[in-house]
């Protein structure tokens, strides 16, 4: 009896720690068996490259959700930031300044989200939902609904270039993930993010700068959405005011599959990385197995539900 309880506790702990890694490996194993095109260098690199856009957004989203917030505006922020940057570059602004302008727009929109949430107490869901429609509307107005194409080669390098054998998007994602992971795991700001999400009242009574931390996570999210957008535009050589629709869903899904709790304070970026990869490998697998893309949403939804069940069982 007693031993059984103990055993169950141990398996639970293991499930919590390694369940997600195991699921990911099983998924890869299954796809390797089902398709001989899965486990090839070019396919894996392809999967990884496709994962970078969602991956970068999901890093910011992890910060936001860790504080028990949500950012629904990432897709629209991405669109507005990229059309502004692309337009400026097309009209002759040097590439580095154009990139900075795009990142600046994302940061600014994030800051507006953050300040509204931190100062007014309006729920993040509502504030970022508002930003989602406002930024999308501005992107459409700015471009008159037309895509902006024909960007300088030194810019498209960000999306289509290589650093040695590795595609630039993967390099940038690795950089973002590495810095994001370090900040969350090792810095004062990282601890504050967890503390704020765990117990905002205690955070305030402990003298933490709760408003600043709240505002900053949305700044980070806006900045990273813009960065992801610039990489996407560089790869497609075209900035579209309608880009990024549904990206908030993919990012939230990755974070949640990765085990970060909506209640805040619980989870982290390693889980998010696995969440991003699981979703991307799944997409790739459906593709390789010639499943109709119309099924994609259904499969994704089921996987998210399964992941949540797994996390629940592990608690």
């Amino acid at each position: 009896m007693g031993v059984a309880v103990f055993e169950r506790l141990r398996t639970r702990e293991a499930l919590r720690r390694y369940g997600l890694v195991l699921s990911f490996l099983l998924l890869c194993l299954a796809l390797t068996l089902l398709s001989d095109r899965f486990l090839t260098a070019s396919n894996l690199l392809n999967v990884l490259r496709q994962a970078t856009i969602n991956g970068i957004i999901a890093v910011g989203m992890t910060y936001v959700i860790l504080t028990a917030g949500i950012d629904l505006s990432v897709g629209s922020v991405l669109a507005l930031a990229t059309v502004v940057a692309a337009d400026l570059m097309q009209t002759g602004l040097p590439v580095p300044l154009g990139v900075l302008a795009g990142l600046g727009v994302g940061t600014l929109l994030g800051a507006i989200n953050g300040l509204l949430i931190a100062r007014t107490g309006i729920p993040p869901f509502v504030v970022t939902l508002g930003m989602m429609t406002v930024a999308r509307g501005l992107a459409l107005t700015y471009t008159q609904g037309r895509p902006i194409t024909g960007l300088p080669a030194s810019f498209t390098f960000l999306g289509a270039g290589f650093l040695g054998p590795i595609p630039m998007p993967i390099v940038l994602f690795a950089l973002v993930f590495g810095v994001g992971y370090f900040v969350l795991a090792r810095t004062v700001f990282g601890e504050w993010v967890y503390a704020l999400g765990d117990n905002p009242v205690a955070a305030r009574l402990t003298g933490l700068p709760t408003r600043r931390v709240t505002a900053l996570v949305y700044v980070i999210s806006g900045f990273l959405a813009a960065l992801a957008g610039l990489i996407l535009v560089a790869r497609l050589n075209s900035a579209q005011p309608t880009a990024g629709q549904g990206f908030e869903f993919d990012a939230i899904a990755a974070v949640v599959v990765g085990g970060t709790s909506f209640a805040g304070g619980e989870g982290g970026l390693f889980g998010t990385l696995l969440g991003v990869l699981i979703i991307q490998v799944l997409n790739n697998g459906l593709n390789l197995l010639n499943v109709s893309p119309l099924w994609e949403g259904v499969v994704k939804g089921v996987v998210i539900a399964l992941a949540l069940l797994l996390h629940r069982a592990a608690r």
């Binding site: 601890e191 967890y194 503390a195 765990d198 117990n199 009242v201 205690a202 955070a203 009574l205 402990t206 003298g207 933490l208 304070g265 619980e266």
Partner: peptide, 17 residues
């Protein structure tokens, strides 16, 4: 409700300030 970060470690809770 007001004092502790229940999901965080003893280490963090003691050194937070």
């Amino acid at each position: 409700a007001q004092g502790l970060f229940l999901g965080m470690a003893v280490r963090q809770n003691i050194t937070m300030t």
